[in-house]
Design a protein around this nucleic acid. Sequence first.
DNA 1: GATGAATGAGAATTCATTCAT
DNA 2: GATGAATGAATTCTCATTCAT
Lengths: 207, 207, 207, 207
Amino acid sequence: MNLGTVSSGVVESRVSTRFDRRLARILDHATAIFCEKGYERASMRDLSRACGMSLAGLYYYFESKQRLLYLVERESFERVMDLLSERLNGVADPEARVRVFIQNHVEFFLARPKVMKVLSHEDDVLEGELGTEIAAIKRSYYRACADLVECLKLDRNQRFNSRNAVMALFGMINWLYTWYNPTVDGSPAVLAQDFADIFLRGVYSGT
Amino acid sequence: MNLGTVSSGVVESRVSTRFDRRLARILDHATAIFCEKGYERASMRDLSRACGMSLAGLYYYFESKQRLLYLVERESFERVMDLLSERLNGVADPEARVRVFIQNHVEFFLARPKVMKVLSHEDDVLEGELGTEIAAIKRSYYRACADLVECLKLDRNQRFNSRNAVMALFGMINWLYTWYNPTVDGSPAVLAQDFADIFLRGVYSGT
Amino acid sequence: MNLGTVSSGVVESRVSTRFDRRLARILDHATAIFCEKGYERASMRDLSRACGMSLAGLYYYFESKQRLLYLVERESFERVMDLLSERLNGVADPEARVRVFIQNHVEFFLARPKVMKVLSHEDDVLEGELGTEIAAIKRSYYRACADLVECLKLDRNQRFNSRNAVMALFGMINWLYTWYNPTVDGSPAVLAQDFADIFLRGVYSGT
Amino acid sequence: MNLGTVSSGVVESRVSTRFDRRLARILDHATAIFCEKGYERASMRDLSRACGMSLAGLYYYFESKQRLLYLVERESFERVMDLLSERLNGVADPEARVRVFIQNHVEFFLARPKVMKVLSHEDDVLEGELGTEIAAIKRSYYRACADLVECLKLDRNQRFNSRNAVMALFGMINWLYTWYNPTVDGSPAVLAQDFADIFLRGVYSGT
DNA sequence: GATGAATGAGAATTCATTCAT
DNA sequence: GATGAATGAATTCTCATTCAT
C-alpha cells in the first residue's frame, strides 16, 4: 500500500464502495468544520450546509456527531502509524529512526493541516467506548515514539529524563497547528529537520 | 506590585473593593469549569451551581460568558508578564535571560494548572474586540520571548531559524497542560531546567 | 372456514398467495413490536429490523404504519367474531351462550397475548376512515355480547343495568392483558369459568 | 386534611407557594393533553401551547416530560390512597370495607376522568427510577384492595381464587375510562354500587 | 419484489441571556 | 446586590415516508 500518493482525502481504500466514497466526502467536510469552529461549536446544521445534504440525510452515514469525530480521528491515526512503520522499515540507526518519526509526523500533518488541528485540539471530547478507543490509539502512537527515544538513549549512553524529552518533542510537533503558515514558514521537510536538530542536540548532554 | 506573595486567586489588586473580591471568586470558579469541560461545553448553569449564586446574579459581575473568559485570560497574561519583567530585572546574560523566561512560564502555570489549560486550549474562541485584545496580549508575550531568543542568537553568533525555534519552545511549554502530573513528574523547577537545557543545546549548532 | 386449526399466524386464509403469506409474517412481527413498545413508540425501523427486510421493502406490503395497525386489529376482530358465531351455533340456553362468549374471548386472546394487548391498548390511535372502520367492528363485537346479556336478562327476568353489566364484563376480560401470567395463573379455561361465575352470579339479584 | 373538598386541581396543599400553584396549573394541562393524545403522541409543544407558556419556560418547572407524567401519576395515587384510608376509618364490616374501596375509587376517578385515563392507559411508559417508584405505589394500592378482599373471604368463609377476583374487580373499575359518559351513564355513586353488587355477589359461592 | 439513499417535519431538551422585583 | 421566572434560538437526533433503480 503506497500511502505516500494520497494527498488529502480522509478516507480512501483500494476498493471503495459508493457509500464509502460519500462517507469520505462527509468526513472531509466534517474535518474542515471541526477545524474551523471547534467540535463543540460546530453544528450538524453547519455540516449539512457544507455537504449540501439534508440534516437527516447525514445520519444515514453515521450514527452520531461523536462517531463522526471518532471516524476522523481514527482514520488519521491509523494512517500516520501505518506510514511510520513503513518508513521505519530498513532504517537501523537509532538517531535516524527518531528523525524518521519526526519527519513522518510533520510531513503527514502539514499535508493535512485541518486534521492536525482537530487531532491536537479535540483531545478529550470523546466519551465512553469511542473515547477509550481513541485514547488507546493515541497511547500506542506515543509508545512508538517513546520506544524510539529510549533506544537512542541507550545507544548513545545518555541519561536525560525520557518522559520529559518525549513530551517536549510532542509539544513541538503538536503545537504546530497553532502557527504554521505554509506561505511564510519553510517547507515541511526543512521544518522537520529543524525540529529534529533541536530535539536531538537538545537531549544529548555534553562530553 | 509584589506578585510573589499572591498564591492562588486569579484576580487580586492592592485596593480591592468587595465587588472585585466577589468577581475574583467567580473567575476562579469559571476557570475551574472552563478547564474541566471546555469553554463551549461549560454552561452558565454549571458556573451558577459552582458559585452557589443564581444565574441572574452572576450577570451583575460581568456582561457575558465571553467577557468572563476574556477576564480570566487577560488577568493571567498580565500576571505572567509582570512577573517576567520583574524577574528579568538585573539579569544581563542572554542565555540566563532565556532561562528566566522558561522558568517563569513553567513555574507560573504549573502553580495554576487550570488557568494553563484554559489559556492554551481556548485560544480562538473569543470574537470581536475581546478576541482582538487577547490576541494582542498574546502577541506581546510571544514578542517578549522572541526578543530574548534573538538577543541570544546574536550574542552567540548562531544562525538557527528564530521563528521555528521560538515556536518549538512555545510548543514544549504550552503542551505541558496535556500531560504534567505533579505526583509523577518532577518539580516545576527541575522540569523548567530540563526544557531550558533541551531548548538551549538544541538551538546551538556545533563549533 | 375452520379457524380451529390455525395456531399462531395472525393472517391466514384458504387460498393464500405468496403476498398474503409474507404480509402475514410482517403483521406478526408488527404485533409483537406494537405490543412490546406501544404503537407510537414502535418505529418502522424496529419493524424492519425484526422482519429482516429493508424499510422501503416493507412499504410494498402496506401503505402506512396506521394501515398496519388497522390490519392487525381487523384481522383479529374478525377472527374472534367468526369463532364466536361458530361456537354459539347450537347453543340455546341464554346463560350457556354468555358463558360461550366469555370462554371464546378469554381462550382466543390468551392464546394471542400480544394481539390482546395491542387491541386493548391501542384503542384510539387510528384516525380517519381506518379508525371509523375499526370502531364499527368493535361496536358490533360489543353488540354481540350485549345481545347475549340482554337475552339472559329477559330469560331470567332480571333488572340489572345492562350497559353497566356488559361494561363490567368487558372490563374484566380486557384488563387481562395487564396481569395474566401463564406460569402463575390458571389455564384459560379455568380463568374463563371464574370470570363467567363472577359475572353471572354478580348480575343475578336474589330471589 | 379534608381532601373531599378538593375537586379538580391535580396539585394542592394548605400552603402552596406561587411556584407550586403554577406547577399545578401545568400539571392540569399536561393531564388533559396526555389524556387526549396519549403520552407518547403529546408533544411538549402541545403543552406549551395549552399553557400559553414558552417551551423553554415549561422546563423551569420540571426536568423532563417523563417527570411530568410521574408527577401527575404520583399525586393522584397518593390522593386516592389517602382518601381511602380516611374513609375506611371506623368501618369494620369486611363487606362494607370492600364497598368503600370501590366507591372511593369510582367516585374519585369519575370526578377526574382525565387523570383516570392517564393512570390506566400510561401504565408502562415510565422508565428507570421514576418507573420503579410509580410501580411501587401501584402495587401498594393493589395490595390495599387485595387485603380487603382477603379479609372478606375469610370472614365469609369463601374459597374463590383471590387473585382472579381482585383482578376482575380492577378490570371493571380501570376499564371505566373507556366508556363512562356522565350524560348517559348514572351517577358515580350508583355505578359504584352496581359494580360492588356485581363483584360481591359474584365472588360469593352458593350456600 | 426489494432496496439504498434521502428528506421534511418534528421530537425533547439546553443555552445564554433578560427583566421585573 | 441578587433572584425567580421566563424566553427565543439553537441543539442533536428520530420519524414515517418516498423514489429511482
